[in-house]
């Protein structure tokens, strides 16, 4: 038996909206420590992982580890039936073939319950090695969203470089070129509005903007985002979900043949 109650149910809705376009059919691994998912996108170019800690829920019970095969598009449709202030409870039996979702309004005067059919999904789990990052940048998630969106109107790929000057995003296309450089800041009113750059070595990597743009769908989950760049390795884009967990995206760099 699995049962989890989330007071801030809108986080679940935002999480599913943040990943559903990259991954359609995924396995959620449930254990007494929480809910984990890892999935590649359809083209196997990026990897999406999330963790929701058991202690981030108002109530969490999992008698034995379960794998729930979920069509995220269908789950998103169901979550559309929830109100933005609803409390969401998820339930599944150990050998059941459905996930029950219950939406309670704030005043608990309206209750919706929906059964989502589960599916059997074959998925490959990838091991992510501990990486020694060349550069780690923390910035407002709205800033990241704006950079990748703005550069998408210039080109399809972006060069991201970290140097002493800061972190530079460059795109080139038929209409011209664009560079956006972010420098470290410390003057913002709120700590999370600052840009923090920790560089161990200069690094330059090339990525498809389409995916980086897709990662920005997690913007409503967190006010900040961390971008980890490592020489010749995938970029990692992290959104921490306050008091609950995280969603992480990894994208393979483009490589000169």
């Amino acid at each position: 038996m699995f049962e989890a109650r989330l007071i801030q149910g809108s986080l679940l809705k935002k999480l599913v909206d943040a990943i559903k376009e990259l991954c359609t059919e995924v396995n959620w691994d449930i254990s007494n420590s929480g809910i984990n998912m890892q999935s590649m996108d359809g083209s196997h170019v990026c990897l999406v992982a999330f963790n929701l800690r058991a202690d981030g829920f108002d109530h969490f019970r999992c008698d034995r580890p379960l794998t729930l095969g979920i069509n995220l598009g269908n789950l998103a449709k169901i979550l559309k039936c929830s109100g933005s202030n609803d409390i969401i409870t998820m339930k599944a039996d150990d050998n059941g073939d459905t996930l029950t979702l219950m939406f309670e309004s704030e005043k608990q005067d309206r209750i919706t319950d929906v059964d989502l059919k589960l599916m059997s999904i074959e998925s490959e789990h990838l091991g992510i090695p501990d990486q020694d990052y060349s550069a780690e940048t923390s910035m407002p998630s709205s800033e990241y969203q704006r950079i990748v969106r703005d550069l998408s109107s210039i080109g399809d790929t972006v060069n991201i470089s970290a140097t002493k000057e800061g972190i530079k995003f460059s795109a080139m296309g038929d209409i011209g070129t664009a560079n956006i450089t972010l420098r470290q800041t410390s003057s913002a009113d709120k700590e999370e509005e600052n840009v923090k750059i920790e560089m161990k070595e200069p690094v330059l990597l090339t990525f498809a903007l389409r995916y980086l743009n897709n990662f920005a769908k997690a913007t409503p989950l967190s006010s900040t985002v961390q971008v980890f760049l490592t020489k010749d390795l995938p970029v990692q884009v992290n959104y921490n979900i306050q008091d609950l967990g995280y969603v992480k995206y990894y994208l393979a760099p483009k490589i000169e043949e």
Partner: peptide
């Protein structure tokens, strides 16, 4: 145009 490798080139199956 640089090539786009798959993510499994960097992360191995567990």
């Amino acid at each position: 145009e640089p090539a786009q490798p798959k993510i499994s080139k960097f992360f191995s199956p567990r």
